[in-house]
Amino acid sequence: MSTTNSFKQIMEEDALAFPPPPEIEEHVLGSLQILTIMGQAMELYIPKVFEMFILTMGGTLKEIDQHTKTEPRDGMPDPDMENPTPGMAGTLDDFGDLMD
């Protein structure tokens, strides 16, 4: 049985006769870098954008923290939560001192 495959031979010949122009690599890899950097920047800054949005809508940084905080590992109460009201963490009382 013959092992010659003229189709594959043509493919090899075309790859040698028509090397891809370097500008293709520059364009593709350049775009890759830009998109990678944009992705990393979004990962860094989108949470900050959400924080700003919540603050603008009248929320507090404490609410943001408490939504993202994990449970205390040793089962002890969270020292930041003084007399917490279940489900009502972070209230206008937080501004008590500022309003005096």
């Binding site: 075309d14 790859a15 028509f18 891809p20 890899l29 890759l32 990678t36």
Partner: peptide
């Protein structure tokens, strides 16, 4: 890892054949 060098290797491995097919 999003290390561009890995994608660059893939690109160089296939760019000749892909471009050759496009020309063909």
């Amino acid at each position: 890892t999003k290390d561009a060098r890995d994608f660059t290797l893939l690109y160089r491995r296939y760019s000749g054949k892909v471009y050759g097919k496009c020309i063909s």
